[in-house]
């Protein structure tokens, strides 16, 4: 997809004091790695490469193990997402009620594919597993707001609304 931006995950990111504290707290608990990765993603919106080095050093686990775990789970992102994160539910109920049409329309209008981010960093597009509000199918979640029972015709309006919103709270 031509509009998708290039890999940007080589930036050096500083570890925040909060995160460091969290890692110290969890350091001696067994099975801490996934919980720590969750906190990293909560802090930065994704898992920056440079932070994985810090985590490896602080937890004293090999970097290979961290990447093994991190790439196994869908939830963890290794790329910085756009300003607005669009998640299209691909659960069965949403699929039956036209979720794939919504996805197609979004791909067309944004000019990116699933897991892509637009060049202007405005939107990221994700397909997600069942969100558990099947009564509202098909469902699209943008920055955590659930939009239910939408059709392809609503897509342009939704994108406009979010493009115009100045800042978003994470």
């Amino acid at each position: 997809m031509s509009n998708t931006k290039q890999n940007t995950n080589n930036d050096k990111v500083e570890i925040t004091p909060d995160l460091k504290l969290f890692i110290d707290e969890w350091k001696d608990k067994p099975g801490n790695l996934i919980m720590v990765l969750h906190r990293v993603q909560e802090t930065y919106g994704y898992i920056p490469r440079s932070i994985t080095f810090d985590v490896a050093a602080l937890l004293e686990v090999p970097l290979a193990k961290i990447y093994g775990v991190l790439t196994f789970y869908n939830f963890f992102k290794t790329e910085k997402p756009g300003r607005n994160i669009i998640q299209v539910c691909m659960g069965t109920a949403c699929y039956l009620r036209g979720g794939d049409d919504i996805m197609e329309e979004l791909e067309k209008q944004l000019g990116i594919g699933v897991n892509g981010t637009t060049k202007d960093n405005e939107f990221s597009l994700e397909a997600v597993r069942c969100l558990g509000c099947c009564g509202l199918a098909p469902v699209v979640v943008i920055n955590g707001d659930v939009h239910g029972k939408i059709s392809s015709n609503d897509v342009a309006g939704l994108l406009k609304t979010y493009r115009e919103k100045e800042s978003v709270t994470a």
Binding site: M90, G91, T92, A93, Y95, R129, C130, G132, C133, C134
Partner: peptide, 12 residues
């Protein structure tokens, strides 16, 4: 870890 698409009993 309710992962089945179209199921939200445990969540509720």
């Amino acid at each position: 870890d309710e992962g089945d698409p179209g199921a939200y009993m445990d969540r509720s």
